[in-house]
Every structure is written in structure tokens, then in C-alpha cells.
Write a protein that binds this DNA or RNA. Structure first.
Length: 250
DNA sequence: AAATGCTGCAACCGCATGCTT
DNA sequence: AAAGCATGCGGTTGCAGCATT
């Protein structure tokens, strides 16, 4: 099976991973009853369903960090995303290709080398950019002004809201996400699973998560609830049995 | 109102890498 | 040592939604 994931498939995958943790991806689709390959399941989980993800646009600070790190590391998006907690390599890659690249070119900086572009080289670079963004007109590069009107750019001004997973609902998958949140609120999830009781690492405290995710850190799980919008919804009230990793109730 | 163009992102693909036997 | 398998990574594509004509 190919194409976009349905809410039903998402449910199955989330339910399976919450129950069993991340294990052999190849076995996941079969065990979870999904008509997908393991690779697809891994990507879906890593890039979209993983609850510790931030949603929405990269902040200016994050964007600058990406640029700085890209100058040092090149197109090693996985290395970049390791330094941007809650961001996926795919997300950073997309943002690089669709936003930052254009900005740098417009500023006269070669995105590949981070060196100033000679005029002749600028035109060459732009003409050889095979991404679809190369087709765009200059006026569309006025990102801060024009894209602010787009549906996915209307970020809330409140930082707390921005960081909430649900607020990312100005993305295309909002309905699916809300559906999932509703489903999670109604579903008896295995909250007493042993992997929930892992202690957090320093990296977790810093919000920098490296290595296998997300079930190897209790902080991740705490973040999960925030990101699922549980703190801002009545989910916690409806799930009084939810407990933190030190055993206290939320 | 309809057609067309453009954008951003989710998902896919092929290759690379690491591990096990 | 090498073959097979599982997973990760970076590049690319397809498409929904919005803007423009």
C-alpha cells in the first residue's frame, strides 16, 4: 500500500508502538495489522507521529542554527536534527530546500559553500537549482510578508501555543491530529509499561535528544503529553490515572 | 467562477552502513 | 571473509491547498 497515511493507520501504528515500543520495524506492519512496509512505518513514526516532535515553522533562532550547522556539517541533516530537539531530519531538509536555500541565494550567499556568490555564479546557481523552488518568482521569496498570509504560516504569537502540537494544526494534518488526540484520550494506553519509568538524561533536560527515540527517556514522554495537547485540553482531567515517571499523578 | 501556477510537506526511492551468522 | 538482513540517510517526487490571472 502506498500514498498518504490514514488516521486509522496512524492509530494502529501509535497503538502498537505505545504497547510494544520501537522494535524490529520490519515486523511492525505485520504485527500492527498495517499494509505498509516497515520502512514506511518507521518514516511515518519518525517524521510525523513521534509525539516529541515540535510542529510549525522553525523559529528564527532555529533557522540560524541550521544555517550555522549546515556551514560546518553540510547536508548531514541527521546531524543537524540532533541539535534541534523536536525537529526531524526530514523537516530540516525540507525547510532547508524550500526556505533557507532561497533566502541565502537572495542574500548573495551560496547555500552549498556559504560563501558570497559572484554575480555570474549567482545566476548559474539559480539556474541549476533543480528544485521546484527554482521555478518561483522573486516576489514569492518575500517570505515574511507573503507567506504570512498562508494557512501554514499563521503561527500563534504565544510561544507556548507555538510549541504545542495541536497548534500545528494549521498544517494540513490538523484534522487527523485532532482525531488522534481524541482517540488517545479515549483509549486505554499502556501507561504502566516499564519503558515509561526510565530516568531522563542530561540531554533530555536540555531538550536535546540523541540516540534512539522516544522511549528511552522519561522526559520525552513528559513532552509527549504536552505535545499531544494534553496539558491544554481536558485530557488530563479525563485520564486521572495518568502518572508521571516518579509515580505522582499529573 | 474557473483555470493555471506555485508552494510546502509528506512520502517514496535507492544507496550506504552496520550487524549477525 | 562474505553474504544476508535491518535500518538509516539524503535526494527526489507527488499532491493538496492557496494565490494569482
Amino acid at each position: 500500500m502506498r500514498g498518504p497515511w490514514t488516521a486509522e493507520e496512524d492509530k494502529k501504528l501509535i497503538s502498537f508502538i505505545l504497547t510494544h515500543g520501537r522494535c524490529c520495524w520490519r515486523a511492525v506492519p505485520k504485527l500492527a495489522g498495517l499494509l505498509r512496509c516497515g520502512k514506511s512505518c518507521r518514516l511515518r513514526w519518525t517524521n510525523y507521529l513521534r509525539p516529541d516532535l515540535k510542529r510549525g515553522l522553525l523559529s528564527t533562532a532555529e533557522e540560524q542554527l541550521v544555517i550555522d550547522l549546515h556551514a560546518k556539517l553540510g547536508n548531514r541533516y541527521t546531524s543537524l536534527h540532533g541539535r534541534l530537539p523536536g525537529r526531524t531530519d526530514n523537516e530540516i531538509k525540507n525547510h532547508w530546500n524550500t526556505h533557507i536555500k532561497k533566502k541565502l541565494i537572495k542574500m548573495g550567499i551560496d547555500p552549498a559553500t556559504h560563501q558570497p556568490l559572484a554575480n555570474s555564479k549567482m545566476s548559474t546557481s539559480q539556474s541549476t537549482d533543480t528544485t521546484k523552488s527554482a521555478k518561483s518568482s522573486d516576489t514569492r521569496d518575500e517570505l515574511s510578508v507573503k507567506e504570512g498570509s498562508r494557512r501554514d504560516m499563521a503561527l500563534p504569537t504565544d510561544p507556548l501555543e507555538q510549541s504545542s502540537w495541536l497548534e500545528s494544526g494549521n498544517n494540513a494534518g490538523r484534522q487527523d491530529q485532532e482525531h488522534l488526540v481524541n482517540w488517545l484520550s479515549e483509549t486505554d494506553l499502556p501507561m504502566d509499561e516499564p519503558w515509561l519509568n526510565f530516568t531522563s538524561s542530561d540531554n533530555d533536560v536540555l531538550g536535546i535528544v540523541e540516540g534512539p527515540l522516544p522511549w528511552d527517556g522519561a522526559t520525552d514522554w513528559l513532552l509527549d503529553y504536552q505535545d499531544f495537547g494534553m496539558c491544554s485540553s481536558n485530557l488530563v482531567d479525563n485520564n486521572s490515572t495518568l502518572h508521571s515517571t516518579d509515580g505522582s499523578n499529573f
